[in-house]
Every structure is written in structure tokens, then in C-alpha cells.
């Protein structure tokens, strides 16, 4: 068994032998890409990565959309963090073991904001807590983001992000996918087979 304290000291000492003096840190404060029509850009990009953007006026329209969405109407296990929109089919608050989320057919989860340049939505475990596996176990995932929370680019995203109290957060862009067999794109690798982002407002 090696001595980790010694390894730590050795590595730090070895690393510090390179000491070039101050090397300036570049500033990120400049004009980055911005889009005249953010919704269009977000929608096009999300489509490019296999997802669907559905702009809706309000949450009632989300419910109306889902009532005509086959993966929802056929779902046996619906997982919803927005009970005002649709109800979960189980008492999810009572689920303590994430393994019990395996059979989720459709999940509805709120996202904090979205990014136009890459079709990503920032989703955290603030409401999911120990159930963040729901994001990846669900066969179909639907996200709700306010339209006025749509940013141009990733630099704006990190300006507003803070990680205090956010143990887990992910930029989620499209359904899960793989191209590991002869570079053929297959949607639905381990996670959701489809992704809808409702832009509300």
C-alpha cells in the first residue's frame, strides 16, 4: 500500500518545478455569437441533434400537446415534476431507491434555461434530488423551459450558473444517441429515445 500523502507531496513538487512566472489569463469579456431569432436557432439546432422544440403559450398548452402524444397516452409509468401540467402515475415522493425508476416511460422535468447555439437545456437535481436517474432511465423525456430563459451562447450560460447547492447539473442537448456502429446514427442509446423541449411563453 503506497503512502498517498507522499504521492501528493511528490506530485505537487514535481508540478511546481515548472515555474514560468505570471502567464496572463485571457479575458472572456467580448462579443460572442448572438442570434436575431433565438427561438428559431434553438429549434433548428435541437432538431439537428434529434430533439423537438415546441413553442407553447402556457402550461395548459403543454398538457394539451401531451394528451395527443402517443408516448404519454400509452405510458404506464409517468414521472412528472410538474404536477400542475400532468400527474405522475405513482407516488414518486415515496420512491427512495432510484432503481425503482427503471420503468419510467415518460418524464416531465423543468429546465432552468436553454442555449440557442447548441440546443442545450440546463437541468439540475434541485427538484430531482436522489432521483436524477429519471433523466436517463425515461424512455421519453420532455422538458419545460420559459421562453424568456433562452440564451444565445454558452458564455452567457456560465455567467448565470452558480453551483452552490447544485450537486448535479447537465446541459442536455437532444435524446441519447450513438454512432459507434459504422458511424450510423442511432437515437436512443442508453437514455431517452426522444426529447421534446417546450418553450413556454
Amino acid at each position: 500500500m503506497h503512502d498517498e500523502t507522499k504521492s501528493r507531496a511528490d506530485i505537487l513538487q514535481s508540478v511546481r518545478q515548472y515555474n514560468p512566472g505570471p502567464v496572463e489569463m485571457p479575458s472572456l469579456n467580448r462579443e460572442w455569437i448572438a442570434y436575431a431569432d433565438r427561438v428559431q436557432q434553438f429549434s433548428d439546432t435541437l432538431q439537428f441533434v434529434g430533439g423537438t422544440c415546441v413553442p407553447v403559450p402556457d402550461l395548459a398548452a403543454v398538457r394539451a400537446y401531451l394528451q395527443n402524444f402517443e408516448p404519454y397516452t400509452a405510458a404506464k409509468f409517468v414521472y412528472s415534476l410538474l404536477p400542475d401540467v400532468i400527474e405522475s402515475t405513482r407516488d414518486i415522493a415515496a420512491i427512495s431507491d432510484p432503481h425503482d425508476l427503471e420503468a419510467i416511460d415518460l418524464a416531465l422535468v423543468p429546465g432552468d434555461f436553454a442555449v440557442a447555439e447548441n440546443g442545450a437545456v440546463w437541468v439540475t437535481d434541485r427538484d430531482l434530488k436522489h432521483q436524477r436517474a429519471a433523466l436517463f432511465l425515461a424512455q421519453h423525456l420532455t422538458l419545460v423551459v420559459r421562453r424568456d430563459e433562452l440564451l444565445d451562447n454558452m458564455h452567457q450560460a456560465y455567467q448565470r450558473l452558480q453551483f452552490e447547492g447544485v450537486g448535479f447539473g447537465t446541459f442536455l442537448s437532444g435524446p441519447s444517441k450513438t454512432a459507434d456502429i459504422e458511424q450510423s446514427l442511432v437515437i436512443g442509446a442508453h437514455g431517452p429515445r426522444s426529447l421534446i423541449v417546450f418553450l413556454v411563453g
Binding site: 441533434v49 437535481d125 436522489h130 454558452m154 453551483f163 450537486g167 446541459f171 442537448s173 444517441k177 437514455g191
Partner: peptide, 18 residues
Amino acid sequence: TGQPVTTYSSHFHGPAPG
């Protein structure tokens, strides 16, 4: 791969609850 971003860019800060 020419994607605008990977599908998941997951940020881990500390252990998961429990």
C-alpha cells in the same frame, strides 16, 4: 464529431444525495 455540444455535459459537484 461536428455536434454543437455533446448530448450530456454533466457537472458533478460533490457526491449524489446519500
